[in-house]
């Protein structure tokens, strides 16, 4: 970490999202709820609003503390304009807010207009998934007093894939970008206890870059900012295991999650919640952050 980055550290402490307060030792699961017909994992599964509400019910029951609602897939084309993205997300957020008053709701977007509509509908967190592409999005988070995710995507513009991207030091680049975004968000008035940083595996990165970020994730954790990782079923897992179908990548996802949890990552954006909760609980218990559920073996 260079001196400029050291100045932008934060004391480790609680993470506040909506009405919830998470201690540094509480692993938090953020469940993906796509309001899209064409996302890479389980495409169209929650395109229908009833199915999406059913998904929210299931992930909450399985232990998710946050739902991350998005209206545009990360991969290129077909285009989704601002109005369409708002229509896909804001009314649904309002419905979720009404049904689950205390659930933390996140809006996954890069556009400030969408962020504004989502916050007005009840979102607690702006997941700026394309790393500050729209500078006004952090202003919206400040205006509504909600949380903000600072993401590293290299030099990618929204919905583009990396093409022969190079870094002298990918983790240094991640730190530089995410800490700059965090400092700016705090300067704009976002409560620092509501700011997270996310290295954004796969975004602007080849598989080796994502593996390096995972290997050195502790360098993000030691900044003091709560770290969110979104690794669920992604290409770097698929390429590591030679598995092209996203639905085959779950074991690899859980292994990477366990490593991140061991290193102190606090929030995990996932598709399959129940399995993630068990992995995180196991990791937290090994760390000594949680007690085991029930211990009789050799003790009776």
């Amino acid at each position: 970490m260079n001196p400029s980055q050291e100045r932008r550290m934060r004391d480790p402490g609680v993470l506040r999202l909506g009405p919830k307060i998470f201690e540094p030792t509480d692993p938090v699961v953020m469940a993906v709820v796509n309001r899209t017909p064409d996302s890479f994992y389980a495409p169209g599964e929650t395109w229908d609003q009833t199915a999406a509400l059913q998904r929210v019910s299931e992930v909450v029951a399985a232990g998710a503390q946050i739902v991350d609602i998005g209206g545009v897939p990360a991969h290129p084309a077909p285009a989704v304009d601002v109005n369409e993205e708002i229509q896909r997300t804001a009314p649904f957020i309002a419905a979720v807010r009404s049904a689950y008053p205390d659930l933390v709701i996140s809006i996954d977007t890069w556009r400030h207009e969408v962020g504004r509509a989502a916050c007005a509908a009840g979102a607690d967190l702006v997941n700026d998934s394309w790393g500050g592409w729209d500078a006004k999005l952090a202003e919206v988070a400040a205006e509504y007093g909600v949380g903000y995710v600072c993401t590293h995507v290299g030099n990618q513009s929204p919905r583009t894939r990396p093409f022969r991207v190079t870094y002298k030091d990918v983790v240094a680049d991640v730190l530089d970008r995410t800490l700059s975004l965090a400092a700016r968000a705090a300067d704009l008035g976002v409560d620092p206890s509501r700011i997270l940083i996310d290295p954004a595996h796969d975004f602007g990165k080849n598989t080796y870059h994502s593996l390096e970020v995972t290997r050195r994730i502790n360098e993000l954790v030691t900044t003091g900012w709560p770290v969110l990782v979104s690794i669920s079923e992604k290409d770097f897992i698929g390429e590591t295991l030679g598995l092209s179908a996203p639905e085959d990548r779950h074991n690899g996802t859980l292994a990477a999650m366990a490593i991140c949890a061991w290193e102190g990552v606090r929030v995990f954006r996932v598709h399959r919640v129940a399995e993630a909760v068990e992995v995180l609980k196991t990791a937290a218990t090994i760390r000594g952050d949680l007690p085991p559920e029930r211990t009789i073996r050799g003790l009776a």
């Binding site: 190079t166 002298k168 990918v170 080849n206 080796y208 870059h209 390096e212």
Partner: peptide
Amino acid sequence: TSYDHLDLSLFAPM
């Protein structure tokens, strides 16, 4: 310079 070589670490940090 002619003695420069490909830096693989740009793509694969290890």
